[in-house]
Design a protein around this nucleic acid. Structure first.
Length: 399
RNA sequence: GGGGGGAUGUCCGAGUGGUUAAAGGAGACGGGCUGUAAACCCGUUGGCUCUGCCUACGCAGGUUCGAAUCCUGCUCCCCCCA
C-alpha cells in the first residue's frame, strides 16, 4: 500500500464523502515525503455508556488508518458533552452530570481499545484545552459568524419553526472545530450527520493558521428496527460488549431491508445472493458474535439460538431465582413474576392472562400455585425473555 | 421593560365542570402466523391486598354535590415587540 492513490481509494471504501475531493491522496503523498504518519481525529461524546455497532463502523475505519501506519487521535469530548451536539436534533439534549460523563468516558476509552491498536492511539480529553480562560474563548468565537453556525439545516429549521435554540448549541461546532486545532488533525472522521461540524473544523484550522483537515464522512448504520439510525437513546442498538446470545438474537431480529447494509458496513462484504435472507442473516449474526467474543462463539450462539427458538426447547442458561412460599406452601404467581422480572404485579397479572408466562414450557393458569409444583421449574415470560430457574428458598417472603 | 402562548399518561396529542384511569396516534409489551424478519390479525399498556380500592392531567391552595376542565398564588418553558 505504498502508493498514496491506491491507499486513498482503499480508505475511501464505504465512505459517503471525503472532502475536499482528491485531498486524501494528496495528503498521503505529502506525509509520505515528510516521513510522518497522519493524525486522524475522531471525537466522541461520552453521553452514552456503551459503544454500539454503529459506532464500530467508524472505529473500523480508524483501524484501517492504523494498519497503514497512521496515528489515531481519539478525543473524548468530556467538555463538549456539557454543551451538547445539536446535530440532527430537533430539541436540546438533556444535561449529564460530570460524574456520568466521567464514567462514560472511562468505558468508552476501554471499549475503543477493543477495535483500535493501542500503539498508534492517542486518547485525549478536550477538557485539556477547552477548560480555558474566557479571553481565549473569545478569541476562538471571533473566528466564526452567527450566519455560519445558523446556516446548517437542523438549526435553521428549528429557528424557522420557532423552536428554541440555545446559544450553547451554536457554540458546539466551534468548540469541536477547535479540537482539530488543538490536536493538529490531518483528517477527521465522523458520521454523515457530522458534515457541518467536520467542515467547520477546517475553517477553525484555517483561522488559526493550520493546514485544513480532510473531512471523511461515514455512513450511519441503521438500527435493529431497520428504520432509524442506531442509537442508544432510541434503544435499537447492539452494544459491542453485549453477550453472544444478545448479539446473535438482536441481529436475527433486524429486518431484511437492513441486511445488505449491515453486511457491507460491518463485515465489509457484499450480501451473498446465493443464499436466502434467513441464512445470510444467520451468517451475519454468527460473524458479529465471533468478532466481539472470539472464535467459536458464533457457532455456539447459533446452536443455542436454534434450540431455543426453532426447536422451542427450554433454555439451558436460566438464571436462578430464589423464591419462598407464603407459609401455607402457596405462591402468588403475579408476585413471583414481578419479583423475578422486575415488573409491577399488575403487569405480571396481565402477562398471565395473555398466556405469556410459562412454567417448563407450559402456559401457567391461575394466580396461586403450590411451592412444590414450582420448585425446580423453569419460568419464562414471553418467548424472548430470559428464563428463571426457580429455587425454593427459605426466606420468609418472596422478595 | 411590555404583550401573547403553553405545561395532560413512555412520547405526541384530544379533552374546557359530571360514567374520564382520561379520545386518537406512535412506541412498547403479549398472543397468532413466520425465518425471534417484514406484512398482517388479536389483545394489553398507572398501581394495588382487583367484581373493589388508591394515585394521576406543572406545584400549592380555593369554589363546587362533583374539576384535567372555574378562581388565586407560585414554578418552569416558548414566541413577539422594545
Amino acid at each position: 500500500m505504498g502508493d498514496p492513490t491506491a491507499a486513498a481509494s482503499w480508505l475511501e471504501r464505504n465512505v459517503v464523502e471525503c472532502l475536499p475531493k482528491g485531498g486524501l491522496a494528496l495528503l498521503l503523498s505529502t506525509v509520505a515525503k515528510e516521513g510522518r504518519p497522519l493524525r486522524v481525529k475522531l471525537g466522541i461524546d461520552p453521553t452514552a455508556p456503551d459503544i454500539h455497532l454503529g459506532f464500530s463502523v467508524v472505529l473500523g475505519k480508524l483501524r484501517e488508518f492504523q494498519e497503514l501506519g497512521h496515528t489515531v487521535v481519539l478525543i473524548i469530548g468530556d467538555w463538549t458533552a456539557k454543551v451538547g451536539d445539536p446535530s440532527g436534533r430537533s430539541g436540546s439534549r438533556p444535561q449529564l452530570s460530570s460524574e456520568e460523563i466521567e464514567a462514560n468516558a472511562e468505558t468508552f476509552a476501554a471499549q475503543a481499545k477493543l477495535v483500535l491498536l493501542e500503539e498508534q492511539l492517542e486518547i485525549r480529553r478536550n477538557g485539556e484545552w477547552l477548560d480555558m480562560p474566557l479571553e481565549k474563548l473569545f478569541e476562538i468565537l471571533r473566528t466564526t459568524t452567527v450566519a455560519q453556525v445558523t446556516d446548517r439545516d437542523d438549526i435553521s429549521k428549528r429557528l424557522k419553526e420557532g423552536s428554541p435554540v440555545s446559544v450553547l448549541e451554536l457554540l458546539y461546532p466551534i468548540l469541536q472545530g477547535y479540537d482539530s486545532v488543538a490536536v493538529s488533525a490531518d483528517v477527521e472522521l465522523g458520521g454523515t450527520d457530522q458534515h457541518f461540524n467536520l467542515l467547520l473544523g477546517r475553517d477553525l484550522q484555517r483561522a488559526f493558521g493550520q493546514p485544513e483537515q480532510i473531512a471523511m464522512e461515514l455512513p450511519i448504520l441503521t438500527g435493529t428496527d431497520g428504520v432509524k439510525k442506531m442509537s442508544k437513546s432510541i434503544g435499537n442498538y447492539i452494544g459491542v460488549t453485549e453477550s453472544p446470545a444478545e448479539i446473535y438474537g438482536k441481529t436475527m431480529s433486524i429486518p431484511d431491508t437492513a441486511l445488505e447494509e449491515w453486511c457491507r458496513l460491518l463485515l465489509d462484504v457484499s450480501l451473498d445472493g446465493s443464499i436466502g435472507p434467513r441464512d445470510a442473516k444467520r451468517a451475519l449474526a454468527s460473524a458479529l458474535v465471533e468478532r466481539f467474543h472470539g472464535e467459536g462463539t458464533g457457532i455456539a450462539a447459533q446452536a443455542d439460538f436454534d434450540s431455543r427458538f426453532i426447536e422451542n426447547e427450554l433454555p439451558t442458561d436460566a438464571t436462578a431465582f430464589e423464591f419462598a412460599g407464603d407459609g401455607e406452601g402457596m405462591v402468588h404467581v403475579p408476585a413471583l413474576v414481578a419479583a423475578a422480572y422486575g415488573v409491577s404485579r399488575s403487569e405480571a397479572r396481565r402477562n398471565i392472562e395473555e398466556g405469556a408466562i410459562r412454567l417448563n414450557g407450559e402456559r401457567m393458569e391461575g394466580l396461586d400455585h403450590s411451592a412444590e409444583t414450582l420448585a425446580g421449574g423453569v419460568l419464562q415470560r414471553g418467548k424472548k425473555r430470559d428464563a428463571r430457574l426457580l429455587v425454593l428458598g427459605n426466606s420468609s417472603q418472596s422478595a
